[in-house]
């Protein structure tokens, strides 16, 4: 009973903060409401006996990714959302379509039946501890997805470098470090 109440509380907060994050005009408020959202997702994980995931959710998402967002916001000094024209011409039509799609997603909820149970029922996880179970699975059954995720991070690094590097367009190889201005020159 209590766990259901906690679930309802978390779910309601998650939905409302997600809506707020989209609706706020000040991006800093949006990021902060996403922060609240992440904490409540961590709460959901705790309800499911997944304490490792809960900790990771807070450390990586709330502690790492959101802080990066905030840094970006502070760097670009964006007080107000930039107003731009809509990408699509038929805005009304797309609203109608999204409402229909949303309602049909709600309509299927009663039909949802939980599928086959996996190898890790609650009793087994409590006996093994969640951290150990997840570690064993990731490094044995799910080793291929794990390595692929690593490759995706490598792409993110290389891609970030490629896109962020300052190109010297004309013969790039001829630009040596000596061409960079010295500190005294910059100060002048």
């Amino acid at each position: 009973m209590i766990s259901q109440l906690i679930f309802l509380y978390c779910a309601l907060v998650i939905i409302s903060t997600a809506l707020l994050a989209v609706r706020f005009h000040n991006p800093v408020y949006s990021v902060l409401s996403v922060l609240v959202l992440f904490f409540h997702i961590a709460g959901l994980y705790l309800l499911l006996n997944a304490e490792f995931l809960a900790a990771i959710q807070i450390i990586v998402y709330a502690g790492g990714i959101l802080i990066l967002y905030l840094f970006v916001l502070f760097l670009v000094n964006l007080r107000q959302e930039i107003k731009s024209q809509r990408f699509v011409a038929h805005h009304r039509l797309s609203t109608v379509i999204s409402i229909i799609l949303g309602l049909s997603l709600l309509a299927i909820i009663p039909y949802f039946k939980l599928g086959a149970k996996g190898n890790y029922p609650v009793a087994r996880i409590e006996q093994l501890t969640h951290t150990k179970a997840i570690g064993m699975e990731i490094y044995s059954t799910f080793i291929l997805p794990f390595e692929l995720a690593g490759l995706i991070l490598l792409i993110a690094v290389i891609g970030g470098l490629v896109l962020a590097r300052n190109d010297k367009t004309d013969p790039a190889d001829d630009v040596s470090d000596s061409a960079a201005p010295t500190i005294s020159e910059v100060q002048e």
Binding site: P145, L148, I152, I155, I158, G159, V162, L163
Partner: peptide
């Protein structure tokens, strides 16, 4: 899904 993301991320860049 992971293969698809690996493909797509490289192409975005």
């Amino acid at each position: 899904y992971l293969g698809l993301e690996l493909m797509a991320l490289s192409i975005y860049c």
